Amino acid sequence: MTPRTRLCGTLLALLTHGQPAGSAPPPAEPGGGPLTVCLAEATPPFSASSLPDGGIDAELARAVAGQLGREVRLTWVSIPNRGGLGKALAQNLAGGACALFAGIPESGGPNEDLAEKRLAASTPYLETGYVLVGARTPVRSLDDARRLGRIGVVTATPADLYLFQQNLHRLPYGDNGALLAALADGSVDAAALWQPALAEARRRGQAQAVDGLALPEAGRTRFVFALRRGDPALLADVNAAVDSLRSDGRLAAILRAHGLAP
């Protein structure tokens, strides 16, 4: 089970509602028209219509459109309980509701489901993972963690497996909400948290701003834009825009503003 499932509830499920066989793909967007971008309705800090700026993906969509000299049109998508993000992807991209769908996770390599359904992925614009945070003092090494003793972790996650391999004393929790509460009330000395969940908790004032130890060995997840494979010109434009935003520091500024400094 990926971190996105545990903490944001939007794991990229199997794309079971693809385009009917023999049907023509939606026409590519005109180069000078509005850039239409779909965003998941409630997956902060990535995207949420309740956030003043819409979240990381909304800010990035605006920046990409600006880089391309185009207006942006955002479409908020409620992720269905059945079919999840995969169904939302197929319905909105294949159906032509949007040209891009932001916030698509890739763990351990390219997303095979996108390839199977003739969807392409942009260059990654964000890579994140787990961080080990102390309840009262910073954790700067695994030796610090061993001295603390009680380390909370969401069970059956890559972080849980990593802590087990390091012979650290783990206390299992069912989700991030429970783990953050345990960190706040001192039930655990430290917690291995999915970094976006920690960033969102800090924004809400539900977590202390204590530095943490990144755990890259526990696994990293990249996030990309998904789009129809039959639109290579748009893919090239989006990749060039993301590269430009990265090189001039604007991408880093967006991530930093949401607590996810590169």
Rank of each mutant, 00 (worst) to 15 (best):
T2W: 01
T5P: 12
R6Y: 09
C8L: 10
L11T: 14
A13E: 13
Q19G: 11
G31N: 13
G31Q: 12
G32A: 14
L35T: 05
T36W: 02
A42F: 00
T43F: 00
P45V: 04
D57R: 04
R62F: 09
G66T: 12
L68Y: 03
R70T: 14
V72T: 12
I79T: 12
P80Y: 01
G83D: 13
G84F: 08
G84I: 15
L85N: 01
G86R: 04
L89D: 04
L89E: 03
A90N: 14
L93S: 04
L93Y: 02
G96M: 13
L100A: 05
P105R: 07
P110G: 11
E112A: 12
T123L: 15
T128D: 12
T128S: 08
G129N: 06
G129K: 01
A135T: 12
V139C: 05
R140N: 12
S141W: 14
D144F: 15
A145F: 05
V154D: 07
V154G: 09
T155C: 11
F164E: 13
L171Y: 04
D175V: 02
N176C: 03
L179C: 07
L180V: 06
L183C: 07
L183M: 04
D189A: 05
A191T: 08
A199L: 09
E200N: 08
R202E: 12
R202V: 08
R203V: 00
R203H: 03
V210A: 11
P216R: 03
F225D: 04
R228G: 09
D231S: 15
L234F: 10
L235M: 07
V238G: 07
A241Q: 14
V242C: 07
D243L: 11
R246H: 15
H258W: 01
